[in-house]
Design a protein around this nucleic acid. Structure first.
Lengths: 338, 338
DNA sequence: AACAGTTCCTTAATCGTTTTCGCTATATTA
DNA sequence: TAATATAGCGAAAACGATTAAGGAACTGTT
């Protein structure tokens, strides 16, 4: 590896001068600067990140925390997409991405300790147990942090508008498609779930619809078996719903199986809707009625917001970036006007 | 941040002594060592990774290269799973993971330059354009590298046994299910594709089956539209196949749509099979007949192999780790014995 | 008592940068 | 002409760790 020392010797100047030239400092002659840069290029020079980091306390490296309960964070379309877009945006601005999910390392460090150990400039909390003391410690530290789909006091967050999304979904199903008996298998308790659930109730109320208690039950995200069972139960009721909303598109597939088992078909006999708008949802027939979350924008905003916090700590205020979802009408909800 | 200096002052010893104590060096008294460690713990000491790296030229950081043609590497079940398992295994051994896909950074570095810049101890090439000069430069460098599902001369590789997998799949479809007219929509040219294709032809030959040229065509991985069109063409032939094998489970779904469009059903009218065994394949009904690639093991082996190369360069030989897939019989291939 | 051999610790150099401060030479001004 | 400002560069300290070499205080041997 060629270092500044090598360049300085070749150019007959001091190391300090080389540093200044390469960093476009002011007190350096135009001629010298140009020459040094040219020589550096020729010699294939690249800075040594750790030396630079040691001196400046800046790593140009962003941490990503991404732990799914099920340990499938990365294989989840939704999170995978967000991560990919965080990465791409960070990269444009010269940042790299390092994972900080240290679960089982020999020398047990907390997330915060791990971040400091690596000298990360900031952390994006994409998904995690938000009650985890380690997560709380991390977001409450002085390290720049942006959370996704969860709001902490005093911490910037990028959130998908689940309230609006659920409202749009319900309005579509209720108004445009004429359904009145709508069941909602919601996910396990979390900020996201609470928002969707509240929005579900509120919108139904606004529209003048009734929601029997038996129509609402707790499933789990991405749990096909659970959705399957709930669906069977719902369809065997004396007054079954005409439409079932699932925790997400993946869980919906479990419900779809149950429906097929009963010899029913979608959307003729029963309408279904999901949430997320994962790839697969628009491939199957009928295409699934769902709210597509704008993961590309969420990832981009997360990176931008975090890098702002890092680079302009003075001017940056705590942000709440709300990203709208988009209704994909699909064909899995039939019109009851027929 | 508390440094060794702080500890040394508190303990009344030199920084060198602290370093040796914390690193379990030999020339240090048991008493002192214990005391220093205790004080370090109390003070919440953690090493400074960049300082350590600067001195030792070891970062305990592994690079991951993961670029899909479609830019969807991370959202692909298969790669996502592998990455997750590389991460988990690396973590156990004290390594972190950093992405090195530098496409559009201002200061354009090649993958190798980027790796050196960050001082990465090694790189796992999970997916990339294997003809890309930058990739070639990387694998031919003296940096420890392990590639996944692609073999470079003199470079360790973890590969899924596509030859065996395809053979098992064909034997199941041909022997156990009695199909003779089997079509294969294969993926675009790559080592993986070539192996599967060769194995397809060879196995059919061994079994005494015939493969009309029109039964074999090139699709693209994860391309539902392409599979859709190919499926229509195949089914409209005068002698249509009784079974179609798709590039992967996801692409298969496009074919499934085409089949439904024609009013046919699986597996009664036409049998289909995929490859990969992604989550979704075992959720839909009928469950898809496919070869589940052992992504967990592939990721684990990749990390282990790479860390071996890093930590024991002398003793480690270039490895070819072959990971078997597993036939998931599913229900999408009917028996022709009926 | 003198010597070597251990044991345990310190000193100091080093990794590749950044950055403060000071120096020199030239340009500007009084 | 002398004083001062400015531009361009270098010397050296620092960031936080590792490590080779050296030294002091013991122990044990002859």
């Amino acid at each position: 590896m060629v270092s500044m020392k090598d360049i300085s010797q070749r150019c007959g100047v001091s190391v300090a001068t080389v540093s200044k030239a390469l960093n476009d400092q002011s007190d350096i002659g135009e001629e010298t600067k140009k020459h040094i840069k040219e020589v550096a290029r020729q010699m294939g020079y690249f800075p040594n990140a750790s030396a630079k980091q040691l001196k400046t306390n800046r790593s140009n490296n962003i941490g990503v925390l991404m732990i799914d309960e099920a340990g499938m964070g990365l294989t989840h379309d939704f999170y995978g997409n967000i991560l990919e877009n965080i990465r791409a945006t960070a990269e444009e601005k010269g940042y790299d991405i390092t994972f900080i999910n240290c679960n089982e390392q020999a020398t047990k460090m907390s997330f915060l300790e791990h971040s400091r150990y690596r000298g990360l400039d900031g952390v994006a909390v994409v998904c995690a147990g938000y009650n985890d003391p380690e997560v709380v410690e991390l977001v409450n530290s002085d390290l720049p942090v942006v959370t996704v789909d969860h709001v902490f006091n005093g911490v910037s967050a990028v959130i998908s508008d689940n309230v609006k999304g659920m409202r749009e979904l319900i309005e579509f199903i209720y108004r445009e498609k004429g359904h009145r008996d709508i069941a909602f298998i919601h996910g396990t308790d979390s900020a996201v779930t609470r928002n969707r659930l509240a929005s579900f109730y509120r919108t139904m109320e606004e529209l003048g619809g009734k929601v029997p208690d038996e129509y609402v039950c707790e499933g789990a995200y991405r749990d096909t078996a659970g959705s399957h069972d709930h669906t069977l139960r719902l369809l065997k009721m004396k007054n079954p719903p005409t439409c079932i909303i699932y925790p997400d598109d993946f869980a919906l597939l479990g419900g779809l199986n149950a429906i097929q088992e009963l010899g029913l078909s979608v959307p003729e006999d029963i309408s279904i809707a999901g949430y997320d708008g994962i790839n697969i949802s628009q491939v199957l027939e009928p295409k699934i009625t769902t709210i597509k979350q704008d993961t590309a924008l969420m990832g981009k905003k997360t990176a931008e917001c975090l890098i702002n916090l890092i680079e302009r700590p003075k001017t940056t205020i705590i942000e709440r970036v709300v990203v709208d979802g988009k209704l994909l009408k699909g064909g899995s909800v039939r019109s009851l006007e027929d």
